[in-house]
């Protein structure tokens, strides 16, 4: 064997990884934000909707949750422009894909959060004369946020890791950066080891931060 590690080429091209990490985070945050919007709207429609709307939302959720993300990425970036007249760059295409994918997961997260709210709290809201919309805004959504927070954190970290798939359509995020170093220096082990460490550390820091946020809300949840 006798492979001797040499990280110097990685450090020389570190801007590729550093810039890639920044883009990965950006992709995750934007997709999460759009995914939250999709998830919230559809979850609220789901719990208050009729049979047909529920079925339509369930189809979306199941379709996207049970399809490998990489296939969705290919379909949206290469497939869709062939069928309909749209143009977008790889990054936009990936954000759109990841957002819709995240939305499918978050509908479930928010729906189960909404359904987990004790009926008594909703009754209390009705009893003081809140309208359904007011109950949603002041009672159900705040309660749901607290219930859903841990699952939301997990989804965010999953999304962050999923951004590595953007490398298959040459979005210059972290994994793509590692690939670039590999292709240009053939230092495959070093490039991927450093990238892996960067995913790991970033993911861990995010997890730690999110758990802190959750704990802040925990007090209120145990009532």
């Amino acid at each position: 064997m006798g492979y001797s590690l040499n990280f110097s080429v990685v450090w020389r091209n570190f801007d590729k990884l550093w810039g890639g990490l920044a883009l990965s985070l950006e992709l995750a945050v934007i997709s999460l934000a759009i995914g939250i919007a999709i998830g919230l709207v559809l979850a609220v429609i789901y719990v208050s909707g009729g049979r047909f709307t529920r079925m339509a939302i369930a189809v979306y959720v199941e379709a996207f949750r049970n399809t490998p993300l990489i296939l969705l990425v290919y379909l949206v970036f290469y497939g869709l422009p062939q069928i309909v007249d749209i143009r977008y760059d790889a990054t936009t295409s990936f954000v759109a894909t990841l957002s819709i994918y995240a939305g499918a997961y978050l509908v479930e997260v928010f729906r189960s959060g909404l359904e987990a709210i004790p009926q008594g709290q909703i009754d209390a809201g009705r009893a003081i004369g809140l309208t359904p919309l007011q109950r949603l805004a002041y009672v159900r959504l705040p309660a749901m946020v607290r219930i859903s927070l841990p699952a939301l954190s997990n989804t965010f970290i999953s999304l962050f890791k999923d951004t590595s798939i953007a490398s298959v359509i040459a979005v210059p995020e972290l994994t793509w950066g590692a690939q670039w170093i590999n292709l240009n220096t053939f230092r495959i082990v070093e490039a991927y080891l450093v990238a892996t460490a960067m995913y790991l550390v970033t993911g861990y820091v995010m997890l730690f931060g999110l758990r802190l946020v959750e704990r802040r809300f925990q007090v209120a949840r145990n009532a």
Partner: peptide
């Protein structure tokens, strides 16, 4: 006005 057996305060 209604007061409930299990209080049902808004926990947040």
């Amino acid at each position: 006005g209604m007061v409930f057996q299990s209080f049902n305060l808004f926990p947040h």
